[in-house]
């Protein structure tokens, strides 16, 4: 019973920590059509896992650095000649491929790569929790601090300039926030499913709300509830936890869409 308590409580704390932050940040991902951008950043984090293991530094640090570098590169080349979509595709798949190849050189006893691809929330330790909640708190603080500026920059770059807001700076801020979230979330839902935790709760909240603030709060609630539901399902039926969490968000999305159809 004690085992159950500490294990599940830690998992719940980790899941909530990520989901509550992914909701509001995911709203910007949806509003700015950055879904592929966030996927590319998350996929790049596998390369960070590999580098961290090779260099024998903490995985969280490796992921943070590589995710940030990838997001920064995407930001810098953002509107350049190659179609945005194509550039992101090149980045997302090549960093993932290089990461997986790099990991294959490591002695297999040292790493279970699927834990980083799909998350391994039940293996979360106290130190991970501190990183997740610390990183999440930083992201939420950044969003709260720049909220109105981020919104005006999201609505239109020229509009932001005219209001004295530099839209590129706000984009950079979102980029940093995204890298932090990816690093925090990789143990919880894994590199392949971080994007789902960002996009699906926000998309679900859209149909239920009339202001950006309400949408952000609702997305956080939906994400949080899904995290708890996924952990319960995983414990009860021995399903993989990260995918289970995402299944609950998808279920919430379908229900919200049905509600729109029925009304």
């Amino acid at each position: 019973m004690i085992l159950f308590d500490s294990l599940v409580m830690r998992a719940a704390a980790a899941g909530l920590g990520v989901a509550l932050v992914a909701g509001p940040l995911g709203c910007f991902v949806v509003w700015r059509r950055m879904a592929y951008f966030s996927d590319a950043t998350a996929h790049a984090s596998i390369l960070g896992v590999a580098l961290a293991l090779v260099l024998d530094v903490p995985v969280f640090g490796g992921v943070l650095v590589v995710a940030f570098a990838a997001a920064l590169a995407l930001w810098a080349f953002g509107a350049r000649s190659l179609g945005q979509d194509t550039g992101l595709g090149v980045m997302a798949h090549s960093t993932l491929a290089f990461g997986l190849v790099a990991v294959s050189f490591l002695p297999s006893v040292r790493i279970d790569i699927s834990a980083y691809l799909f998350g391994d929330i039940l293996a979360v330790r106290e130190r991970d929790l501190a990183l997740i909640w610390g990183g999440g708190a930083i992201v939420l603080a950044l969003l709260a601090w720049r909220w109105s500026r981020l919104l005006i920059a999201t609505l239109g770059a020229d509009m932001a300039h005219a209001a004295g807001v530099n839209p590129r700076r706000e984009e950079l801020l979102l980029t940093v926030a995204l890298a932090i979230l990816v690093a925090a979330a990789i143990k919880v839902v894994g590199a392949l499913l971080v994007g789902a935790l960002l996009v699906i709760p926000a998309a679900t909240a859209r149909g239920l709300t009339r202001t950006p603030e309400a949408m952000a709060a609702t997305a956080a609630l939906i994400g949080g509830a899904s995290a708890l539901g996924g952990i319960w399902m995983s414990w009860e039926f021995d399903t993989p936890t990260g995918p289970s969490i995402v299944c609950w968000t998808a279920l919430a999305f379908v229900l919200s869409q049905l509600r729109g159809v029925i009304r």
Partner: peptide
Amino acid sequence: SLPMTVRRFMALP
């Protein structure tokens, strides 16, 4: 995808 009333828009930034 961005829910925003006219009144809220007026209060930005």
